[in-house]
Amino acid sequence: MTPDLTTLQPLRPTLYRLAADGRSLDFLFAQCPQCRQLSFPANAPGCMHCGHAIDASAQVARPGGGTLLEYVTLHVAMVPGLPTPSIAGDIRIAEQVVEEGVIGVADESLLAPGMALRAVAVPLPSGEHYGCHFVPADARGATT
């Protein structure tokens, strides 16, 4: 049974929140008042493109997702609690904004550079929070 994600809190509340469909994530960006570009995360102390100071009033939400640039399987737990194997990838989540994310597919054969991904909420073992995984936008092969 799919848990009701609306009862859970985001593990990284400055980065994302549950979208209206109750499953996808919206990402929280800051839109620079000077150059109008998006920065991530929204609470960064300066625009990542032009360095202009930004504050909470610049925050905007956009559907979470992007373009998969590269990916690898992690075979050892590089941080405590990291399940292995798992897949990490670099995703362009906005123009000139590339972030590493967890890719929620069973194996690399389901991925290709340039693939469109969307961000979805995944319930965490604590039972109190949800995290963020990226899955193919067409959702085939997603494990989460």
Binding site: P41, M78, V79, A88, E99
Partner: peptide
């Protein structure tokens, strides 16, 4: 003070 989408985002071996 900034959160990241992935716990391994600052691990050189992954990069």
């Amino acid at each position: 003070g900034l959160e990241r989408l992935s716990d391994t985002a600052t691990i050189p071996a992954v990069k």
